[in-house]
Amino acid sequence: MTRRRSGPRVRQETPDDKAALVFLGPWLIGAVVLVVGPLLASLYLAFTDYNLLQDPNFVGLDNFSRMLGDERLHHSLAVTFTYVIVGVPAQLVVALALAVALDRGMRGLAFYRSAFYLPSMLGSSVAIAVLWRLIFGQAGLFNGLLGAVGIDTSTSWIADPDTALWAIILLHVWTFGSPMVIFLAGLRQIPREFYEAASTDGASPWRQFRSVTLPLLTPIIFFNLVLAIINAFQSFTQAFVVSGGTGGPSDSTLFYTLYLYQEGFGAFRMGYASALAWLLVVIVGAFTLINFWASKYWVHYDD
């Protein structure tokens, strides 16, 4: 009897502060020293001329007014927005199409899923970026394939400012495997009865896709979209390797994070780089908020 009284219920009410300090101690140190502290520090540095060697001087809004006239920044924003606005939807459409094609009792599903996931896993590696550079180079695989179908060209697609970005967008689309796996998991949740009912009513496969699959999948599409946009804004490796770290030719692959890296760790304008980082946070945050706001109009939740 006494045991029951001093049992778990009662102990739950006394806080486990000491135990929490032990279990969350490492996390707390990391959160304070490596995240929250640096977050505040970079907010401060954004208003300074810090260059790593000398103490930072407060310069007010100088970094932000410099942004207004910084043409490389404007260019890198245009490049990054193009990449996000074209690359993300294109990748998700491919992912969704293949997930739907694989969903209905396809034989060999496990094999296809693995095969399609592989590019996704390797896609962010330097090795694949190197490969891409060679595929779209002057004597690369792409021109070889064009030659095989009778189009002879000696264009280097990554050396041409009009096409270099598109080669990197294609690389992004190629990594459709991981959103596809998420779509497959979502498709699995759709009750079979809905399709049976639709097909009894004479709905064509396209109509079933439009009226059953798509609406019920909107929460997953939304999830993929939010994640993909946040990640795409932070893309770095591919543009860095394909352009040899320059963002060229003619800044045509100057991704935002690449410009930030050049300013911060190339030119050591760390105050300006911090300001750029905060602008990135604002942009990504705004996109995410807009996404959540817009979701009210197209995402269906069961309730």
């Binding site: 640096p38 520090a41 911060g264 760790f265 911090s274």
Partner: peptide, 12 residues
């Protein structure tokens, strides 16, 4: 939060 916004102070 993106790594880019904390990387400068972390580097320091």
């Amino acid at each position: 939060i993106p790594i880019h916004v904390v990387i400068v102070p972390q580097y320091v």
